[in-house]
């Protein structure tokens, strides 16, 4: 900001560091974008044929495939949204009750939640798959919400519990004196006040459910039911050597854009949720 010679060198250093960071973070996605807009021949020609060879054919191929790519996006959105709602519906009462206790049970539950939040959930897929088969939930898109909510609950409860605990207790006590029922207190006083925490928790749950792979992979086999993650894997698994790179790239771009939008719109809430999770958890 200042033009003194002493300050210029750090600024220059910083600009180059920031540029490097952006290159590192975005270059892979930009390369996908570039690839998705090129014809197969021009890709094999290397950097020489930059003049021509631009095309939207990759996108139309992906969007008109069977099933069209949009179906995966829609499936992921539906599962993500429903899982988020289910998680919040279960986590909010639990977090509220937990925040109002101060006994051994709270310590036990809190410790269990912490352990579960760190647990590599991929270990659970086989047993969950067996349960799904027994209950006839395989190939049922909406049933995915159950394991997703279960897996998201530890972090969600911890985050919301911390938010409830941060509220001044007199606010609820006053509502109690005014004769509000538990539902009224939550609806009119507590939830509006922890709104930001609810939003950031919901976003984290949505991102998890949108991206989840092993359970979706094993529960879903009908291609029109696939969510984005297993669909990508299926595309990748189709062949390693005769790959239609352009179409793949178009798929990654289409799969990435919704998240980029989400990230840019809700960046503050997502960052808050992530860091709160670390600090409070």
């Amino acid at each position: 900001m200042s033009s003194s010679p002493l300050r210029q060198r750090p600024a220059l250093l910083r600009i180059s560091m920031v540029a490097l960071l952006m290159l590192w973070s975005l270059a892979p996605m930009l390369w996908q974008l570039y690839t998705s807009l090129r014809t197969p021949e021009s890709l094999l020609a290397g950097l020489a044929g930059l003049g021509g060879g631009w095309t939207l054919a990759n996108y139309s191929a992906v969007l008109q495939a069977d099933p069209p790519f949009g179906v995966y996006l829609l499936n992921s959105t539906v599962v993500g949204a429903l899982s988020t709602l289910l998680t919040l519906a279960l986590a909010i009462p639990c977090a509220y009750a937990l925040s109002r206790r101060s006994d051994l049970l709270k310590l036990v539950i809190g410790g269990g939640l912490l352990a579960a939040a760190v647990f590599p959930y991929v270990l659970l897929f086989l047993a969950l798959l067996q349960v799904a088969r027994q209950l006839g939930l395989a190939n049922n898109l909406l049933a995915l919400c159950l394991p997703y909510a279960g897996l998201s609950l530890p972090l969600a409860v911890l985050l919301l519990q911390a938010a409830f605990a941060d509220l001044p207790v007199e606010l609820e006590e006053n509502a109690l004196l005014e004769g509000f029922s538990l539902g009224q207190r939550l609806r009119w006083i507590l939830l509006p006040l922890i709104g930001p925490a609810v939003v950031s928790t919901g976003l984290l749950v949505f991102l998890f459910s949108w991206n989840e792979f092993p359970i979706a992979l094993t529960w879903l086999s009908r291609s029109e039911l696939l969510t984005l993650a297993p669909a990508m894997a299926r595309i990748a698994g189709s062949s390693v050597f005769t790959v239609p790179h352009g179409a793949f790239a178009a798929a990654t771009v289409l799969g990435g854009v919704p998240l980029l939008a989400l990230l840019l719109i809700f960046q503050r809430q997502i960052v808050a949720g992530l860091t709160q999770g670390a600090i409070k958890g």
Partner: peptide, 16 residues
Amino acid sequence: PGRRQVAMVFQSYALY
């Protein structure tokens, strides 16, 4: 508390 018909002014005022 809700059925006692008491009103309390808290030290922090507890305004919503």
